[in-house]
């Protein structure tokens, strides 16, 4: 038996004319706030994520850095990115960013996905992959401005962080947020997280980080995973965090304005066919002629 959440705000490859079930939408948007300024890069979140989600990636290699696994994968849904940055004042900073799905309000993956229902967004803002509907086309990878989803080599499906939708659904925080030793990851309603971020930014200003700020990029409608950055003016310092992420114009075109145009064109073609059939009637063809041709051939 399947359980229905009936709180699906967005559903991949689904027209607004036939929307997903969504009447149970009276839910607060949730968010995860990652305060990079107190992250020690311990990878507890990585381990807790894999543990909770029953994932075991390959035991890889050391390639000369602390980052391990070296990249996100179908079985590593979050990884720490380490960057050594020498600031102008001569001080060294070791910037460590937890990378993973940002759970955009306007998710590029969902928009790009051609398979109905393979990607959904719940009323609480979580963007979740329903992998049984995934056709492994990789459009979500191309559509993501943060380069997050990964296609599994084993089953050819796309995977990424679920923001522990199974835990959040029963009222718990995501595994990474719970386990974080220093409290660098917080979880709550998006409004509360924005408020907390404000306090953190103020504290960082007091410690001399004049450009500290919240990373909640509006180009994707804001995100449900946000960062407090000590150098919010230079997000690229944090392993090339995009300064102004947006869904690519190709996808915007294809899945945006092109879609009604295509729909109109489709229905126009359909209608034309119908009128032709009613007005002109079907072409009369001698079915046997075909057979003769076939025989000749």
């Amino acid at each position: 038996m399947s359980m229905q959440s009936q709180d699906i705000l967005k559903r991949s490859a689904t027209s607004a004319l036939t929307p997903p079930t969504q009447v149970r939408d009276h839910k607060a948007e949730v968010a995860k706030l990652i305060d990079v300024s107190i992250c020690i890069g311990c990878k507890a979140c990585q381990v807790a994520c894999s543990e909770w989600n029953d994932l075991r990636d390959e035991v890889g290699q050391n390639v000369g850095v602390y980052d391990n696994p070296i990249d996100l994968s179908a079985k590593s849904w979050t990884v720490m990115r380490f960057d050594e940055v020498q600031q102008e004042n001569g001080r060294l900073e070791w910037l460590i960013r937890k990378d993973g799905c940002m759970h955009c309000s306007d998710p590029g993956c969902l928009k790009a996905c051609p398979s109905p229902g393979a990607i959904v967004q719940y009323a609480n803002g979580i963007v979740d992959f329903q992998s049984e509907h995934c056709i492994g086309c990789g459009y979500c990878v191309a559509g993501c401005p943060f380069n997050v989803p990964r296609i599994s080599q084993e089953d050819n499906k796309a995977y990424k962080c679920t923001l522990c939708s199974d835990r959040v659904a029963v009222g718990q925080e995501p595994a990474c947020a719970k386990t974080c030793p220093t409290g660098a990851i917080s979880f709550g309603s998006k409004a509360d997280m924005q408020h907390l971020a404000g306090q953190r930014v103020e504290e960082l200003h007091g410690r001399g980080y004049a450009n500290a700020g919240l990373y909640d990029p509006q180009g994707v409608g804001g995100t449900h995973v946000m960062y407090v950055l000590h150098h919010a003016d230079r997000p690229e310092l944090y392993h090339n965090l995009p300064r102004d992420p947006r869904i690519s114009s190709a996808i915007h075109g294809w899945k945006g304005w092109m879609k009604p145009v295509a729909a109109v064109a489709f229905f126009a073609t359909l209608a034309g066919t119908l009128f032709h059939y009613v007005g002109v009637g079907p072409n009369q063809v001698d079915e046997h002629a075909d057979d003769h041709e076939e025989t000749k051939a």
């Binding site: 359980m3 490859a13 659904a169």
Partner: peptide, 25 residues
């Protein structure tokens, strides 16, 4: 093709709408 186009444009039948998070373990 018409059906596929319709589906691609989002006019799919509602069979796959029983979406849910993973069961809480």
């Amino acid at each position: 093709v018409a059906g596929a186009t319709a589906a691609t444009l989002g006019f799919a039948p509602g069979v796959a709408n029983a979406t849910q998070p993973r069961q809480y373990k």
